[in-house]
Design a protein around this nucleic acid. Structure first.
Lengths: 227, 227
DNA sequence: CCAAAAGTGTTGAAACTACACCCATGG
DNA sequence: CCATGGGTGTAGTTTCAACACTTTTGG
């Protein structure tokens, strides 16, 4: 069945910039394209928006279809509409950015043609996806400093050092250990667990979890997180 | 001529939230709709995206066509894609937000069915435009606190009191005069002019202008403006 | 006992808040 | 001369940055 309109319309897609963290590098999830154009190039997961779904729904659907990921932190990023961003025809793309925890991240690797790449060395990408990725990175840095979202990239139980390494990897700066701990704990958003993290030949580390309820309460009172 | 596609496509529009400041209230520019649906209701200026223009270009074109405004500060806000946001058919809208100086603002009033409303008391709006406006307001508050964009809502030459009133109107809080002046001048982004602003039966006020070049230089060095 | 990461306090500098009076003008 | 908004400085408090050593573990 064909669809006919009085005026021409751009095609509308969603693309997702999916970030993960392996303890060392910030990573992006990419899909190897099976079809032309840009056949065999790596690209952001995404696809066409259906008429009966919202943009958010389209992003989640495509993400699940192409990478198997569900229940991730997902947020609209920016809409890209350069006239020639797709060589075939006019395509406008609503970009999303997603954060996934390491547990989910490994699942994604099973997906057919998906793989993780350190953001620093992301191969040449299809379309304008390099630009989209750059925009997403900028936004992530901003968000990390102003909202407690780092936890979305860590396991539910994590150590302060893991959290610090994440901040350092994303922001690209070294942070002072004592000041970092003071500040983070000062917000009183982390609960110390009765467990420790043992690994390697050194003192075990205290595990914490993030308390989202506490954060919501604080946010309502106009509280501003700032790393 | 008709246009035919293999899969159905949403229509794609842009909508602009245009803010102005009259010295007292923050205002939005609205258009009275001439056609159904929502005939005679007030709505955000906007319209369909053409195939040969970027989204930014579409926003600027529509703005000029419907309000006569040109050369305004314009930035993409968010894309709205609820399935039933337009009762006729699926329409996805890329929302923009714009800041205009008082001089330009008066021009807009001449436009056929355009008028300014205090944001607080914006009449019932068409479609989901109230939601778009709310999102834009949130963004404006955020932006005003983190980037020096307030000047886009003031005349090229302005007094510190005008600037402070703008901040107070947008943020909805009273600010301490001395601290405000100290902070703003401390950034060294304003140049004191040799003119004063005389008005009313009191001491004339020093006029300033914003120095965009200075700001660009500072920004490159990782400087963060914060009111 | 050695290597490796976890954990912990203090001090000086800078930034923030609160606050009250004199100044220049027009009417 | 009076009403109106313009303009200015300080002191106490809080926040920030810099900085080095001890602890616990596994091998």
């Amino acid at each position: 069945m064909l669809h006919t309109y009085k005026y021409p319309r751009p095609a509308l897609t969603v693309d997702c910039v999916v970030f993960g963290f392996d303890g060392g590098d910030l990573q992006v999830l990419l899909i190897r394209r099976a079809l032309e154009p840009f056949k065999n190039r790596w690209a952001l997961p995404g696809g066409f928006v259906h008429l009966d779904e919202t943009l958010d729904e389209a992003a989640r659907r495509e993400l699940e279809e192409e990478t198997g990921l569900r229940e991730v932190f997902l947020e609209q990023l920016h809409t890209f509409g350069a006239v020639d961003r797709d060589p075939r025809e006019r395509v406008v793309s609503v970009a999303y950015f997603a954060l996934v925890k390491p547990s989910a991240a490994t699942a994604a690797t099973d997906a057919a043609e998906a793989d993780w790449f350190p953001v620093a060395s992301a191969a040449p990408l299809a379309f304008d996806h390099a630009e989209i990725l750059a925009t997403a990175l900028e936004r992530l840095r901003d968000k990390l400093r102003r909202e407690p979202v780092g936890f979305e990239l860590l396991p539910p139980k994590f150590t302060l050092s893991q959290l610090q390494r994440l901040y350092e990897a994303v922001l690209g700066t070294a942070l002072d250990k004592r000041n970092f701990r003071k500040k983070v704990l000062g917000y009183d958003l982390l609960v110390a667990l009765k467990e420790t993290h043992r690994e390697g030949a050194h003192r075990p580390a205290q595990l914490f979890r993030f308390d989202p309820a506490k954060y919501r309460r604080l946010k309502k009172k106009g509280f501003l997180f700032e790393l």
